[in-house]
Simulated assay, not measured.
Amino acid sequence: MKFELPPEIGPHEGREYQLMLAGLKKVALFEILPSDFLENKSRLDIKYLYPDEYNTIAYIKGGEFDAAKLSELIKYQQDIRCVDEATEYAIGEILGYSKHEVKCFLEHCKAIKNANERAIHSEHLANEQRGA
């Protein structure tokens, strides 16, 4: 199943660099750093944190505290090995998402998890019926 954000979320995705350039966003989180950040044609003073091997936090002046807090929250989520809704709301707030957008995101994640669990269960039942 492909992970796509629900339409209620956004419009940050793919626009983080422009939002930072306009001063509307101080912190962004990526698994893969977009090319506009790598190229940095407008010469933004972008700093980076790497809370783990999967995530990169990009931030500009004024976003230092929030970037550090975001890094701590990501590490916390990994330590507890589950989705903690209060932590997700804190992460969403740092990234500029509304509570409604975070709620939609969490509902979307739960739906994907449930679909994956159903698929695994169905596969397990099919294997049992085949005698595997």
Results as ranks from 00 to 15, higher is better:
Lys113Pro: 02
Glu107Val: 05
Leu106Pro: 14
Ile112Trp: 06
Glu117Gln: 05
Lys99His: 08
Phe105Glu: 07
Cys104Gly: 06
Cys104Phe: 14
Lys103Thr: 05
Asp84Thr: 02
Tyr89Arg: 15
Cys109Phe: 12
Glu93Arg: 03
Gly96Lys: 04
Gly96Phe: 00
Tyr89Thr: 15
Glu117His: 00
Cys82Lys: 14
Lys103Cys: 07
Lys113Phe: 12
Val102Ser: 12
Ser98Asn: 05
Ala86Gly: 00
Asp84Glu: 11
Ala111Pro: 12
Arg81Gln: 13
Glu101Leu: 05
Ile94Asn: 10
Arg81Ile: 12
Cys82Gly: 15
Lys99Glu: 10
Ala90Met: 05
Glu107Arg: 05
Ser98Gln: 02
Asp79Pro: 14
Leu95Tyr: 01
Asp79Asn: 12
Tyr97Ala: 05
Ile112Glu: 06
Ile94Val: 12
Leu95Met: 10
Gly96Ala: 02
Glu117Tyr: 03
Cys109Lys: 14
Val83Cys: 04
Lys103Gly: 01
Cys82Arg: 14
Cys82Asn: 10
Ala90Phe: 03
His108Ser: 10
Leu95Ala: 03
Lys99Cys: 03
Ala90Tyr: 00
Asp84His: 04
Ile94Arg: 02
Gly96Cys: 01
Ile91Cys: 14
Val83Lys: 11
Arg81Cys: 14
Glu85Ser: 13
Glu93Gln: 01
Ile112Leu: 08
Val102Glu: 04
Ile91Met: 15
Glu107Pro: 02
Ile91Arg: 14
Val83Phe: 03
Ile94Gln: 13
Glu93Asn: 07
Ala86Leu: 06
Ile80Ser: 08
Phe105Lys: 02
Glu107Thr: 09
His100Pro: 00
Lys113Tyr: 05
Leu106His: 06
Arg81Thr: 07
His108Thr: 04
Glu117Val: 01
